[in-house]
Structure formats: structure tokens, C-alpha cells
């Protein structure tokens, strides 16, 4: 039964990747100026363009192009990047680790701070701490990340000279983009932890734990936290898409040498091969991590397994 659940999720995932492939293919075909025109520049002779178009298969009927695009995509081949002069997927994979580092760092910050905030707020629902935290998290969730990033550069990098403003590589450069990316996510984790903790606090086993003389700290860490973290795990997995989308914008603000920076540049330069490769790689990441979140959820909460069985 678990297998059926898994297979269904897998099918939805594959369908999603196919949908993204199709969407990207269509957008590129709708864009003014095809691959050949863009690669050769405005001064190219019409014969040259026609020749390259023939080499790239752009003179074929749309359906033939689509099928060969899908076939190549399955093998991870998205064609040559005209700007980098090498396979687009190579260029994309080279930038990928930087994006993984950034998103992982942001997730770490968001989960740590978010859970602490959530426990503080949810411990006593309706208290002053709870109401203050709710207001703050609501505000944080609405902040425009790219502008917050610029203001952090202004204050911490330019005025106080504590951290470098842009670039990538070491830990110093990671701090500002990771914190910026983490802000809305921290608020989200905080809100979810809060409602989970608040709900668990009214469970009978909490009363039992208290009445057997455990300290409030022991009750929280030993009994409440474990039971309220299930939704947090799922949300972390399901928000991967949002996080990667945010990373695309944040990387541009901080000139972080990741996938997003590459993608925005490629969109601006009409480097179609790189746009396609980067978009599809992000889609695959999102699908895989969503699947992992589903599985973790079913693993952590037996009730979900039972529901899937029905």
C-alpha cells in the first residue's frame, strides 16, 4: 500500500517535470528571435542564419522539434550555450553547488530560529510573547527579500563594514544572502511550529508529563517538540520550490555565483540552452525534494500512512 502511495507521488512528479519541459519549450519558441538569430548576432548574413537553423533542427516542424527536444532532455542534453561555448547542462551543474550551499544555509537558519520562535510563542498561546511573535513573523513574511538584501548591504557592508557586500565562495560572503533568503522562511517555520506546539500543549499526555513532576523544559523538549515538528518537516520539503525561486532573486542581489545568477543572466542574454537546462534542473530538484517530504511525512506520522491506505 505504501508502494502504491509512492508510485502515485512519483507519477505526479514525472508529470510535473514533463509539464515544465513543455512550458519551457513553448516559451522559447514564442520568444522573438530564435536560437540561430541570437547566437549569430545582428550582423549575420541570412544564409548563415539559415544554415545554423538547419544544423540546430529549427527548420523542422514544431512537433518534430518538440519530440527531439524531449528525447535530448531525457539524456540531460539541452544543447550548446552560445555564450559559454559548451554544453548548457555543464555550465548549469558547475553553478549548482553554490545554490545548494546557499539554500541549505538559509534552511538551517530558518529552521533553527523559526523553531525557537515558534516554541516561545506556542508555549503560552495568547500571551504577550505569542502576540508579539505573530505580528513580527507576519511582517517578516511580507518583506520584499531583494530590498531587504540591499538594505543589509547598505548597513552591514557599506556603513558598518562588517561583511562583504557581494561575491561568493567563503563563509563571510555566505552570511548576508543566506540571512536574506532565510527571513520569510523563518517566519513561516515559526508560524507553523507555533500552531503545532499550541495544539500539542492541550494534549492529555502533556498534562500527564507535567503531573509526574517533569520540569517545563523537559515537557517541552521531551514531549511537545517531537510531536509538533512533523508539519515543520513537510513544510521544509514543500517550500523548496519557493526557496529556490527566492534564491534566484537573492543571488542576483549579492552576485552569488549560483544557478539563479546564471539563469537571470541567461534570460537577459537569450541563452536559451542555459535557460532550459537551469529551469529543468530546478524542477527536478523541487520534485525530488517534495517526494522526499511526502515520504518523511508518512514515516513520521503513522496517521498519514493509514489515510493513504484508504
Amino acid at each position: 500500500m505504501m508502494l502504491a502511495f509512492l508510485l502515485r507521488r512519483l507519477a505526479v512528479g514525472l508529470f510535473t517535470i514533463w509539464g515544465v519541459l513543455t512550458a519551457v519549450f513553448l516559451v522559447v519558441r514564442l520568444a522573438p528571435g530564435d536560437q540561430a538569430t541570437v547566437a549569430l548576432g545582428p550582423d549575420a548574413a541570412p544564409e548563415q542564419i539559415a544554415e545554423l537553423r538547419h544544423t540546430l533542427g529549427l527548420d523542422q516542424p514544431l512537433l518534430v522539434q518538440y519530440l527531439s527536444f524531449l528525447g535530448d532532455a531525457v539524456r540531460g542534453d539541452f544543447g550548446e550555450s552560445y555564450r559559454y561555448g559548451r554544453p548548457a547542462m555543464d555550465a548549469v551543474l558547475e553553478r549548482f553547488p553554490a545554490t545548494v550551499t546557499l539554500t541549505l544555509a538559509a534552511t538551517l537558519v530558518a529552521v533553527t530560529v523559526g523553531i525557537v520562535l515558534g516554541v516561545l510563542a506556542g508555549h503560552r498561546p495568547g500571551s504577550l510573547v505569542d502576540r508579539a511573535t505573530s505580528t513580527v513573523t507576519l511582517g517578516l513574511q511580507a518583506l520584499p527579500p531583494f530590498w531587504v538584501g540591499i538594505m543589509l548591504i547598505l548597513v552591514l557592508a557599506l556603513w558598518l563594514r562588517l561583511l562583504p557586500s557581494a561575491g561568493g565562495g567563503d563563509l563571510e560572503h555566505l552570511v548576508l544572502p543566506a540571512v536574506t533568503l532565510a527571513i520569510p522562511f523563518t517566519a513561516l517555520v515559526g508560524r507553523i511550529t507555533r500552531s503545532g506546539v499550541a495544539e500539542t500543549m492541550s494534549e492529555p499526555f502533556v498534562r500527564t508529563a507535567r503531573s509526574k513532576g517533569l520540569t517545563e523544559r523537559e515537557v517541552l523538549t521531551g514531549h511537545v517538540l517531537k510531536n509538533s515538528l512533523v508539519p515543520v518537516v513537510t513544510v521544509v520539503g514543500l517550500q523548496v520550490g519557493t526557496l529556490l525561486g527566492g534564491a534566484v532573486v537573492i543571488e542576483t542581489v549579492f552576485a552569488w555565483p549560483g544557478l539563479g545568477n546564471l539563469l537571470v543572466g541567461a534570460v537577459g542574454n537569450r541563452d536559451y540552452a542555459v535557460v532550459q537546462a537551469a529551469t529543468v534542473l530546478i524542477a527536478v530538484c523541487v520534485v525530488v525534494l517534495n517526494l522526499a517530504a511526502d515520504l518523511a511525512y508518512a514515516r513520521l506520522d503513522p496517521r498519514i500512512r493509514l489515510e493513504a491506505r484508504r
Binding site: G13, A23, L30, G241, T242, G268, V275
Partner: peptide
């Protein structure tokens, strides 16, 4: 429902970047 699934899984801002960036 399937169309919604696909769009839900993919970050909306990314889709907007690709569409708005590549078209005029």
C-alpha cells in the same frame, strides 16, 4: 487538478522570470 499540481510544484516567480524575460 493536474495543471494545478504542475504549477504548484514549480516556483511561480521563476516561471514569471522566464516568461517575462524571454518575451518582448
Amino acid at each position: 487538478a493536474r495543471t494545478v499540481d504542475v504549477l504548484m510544484a514549480f516556483p511561480g516567480i521563476l516561471l514569471a522570470i522566464v516568461i517575462a524575460g524571454l518575451l518582448d
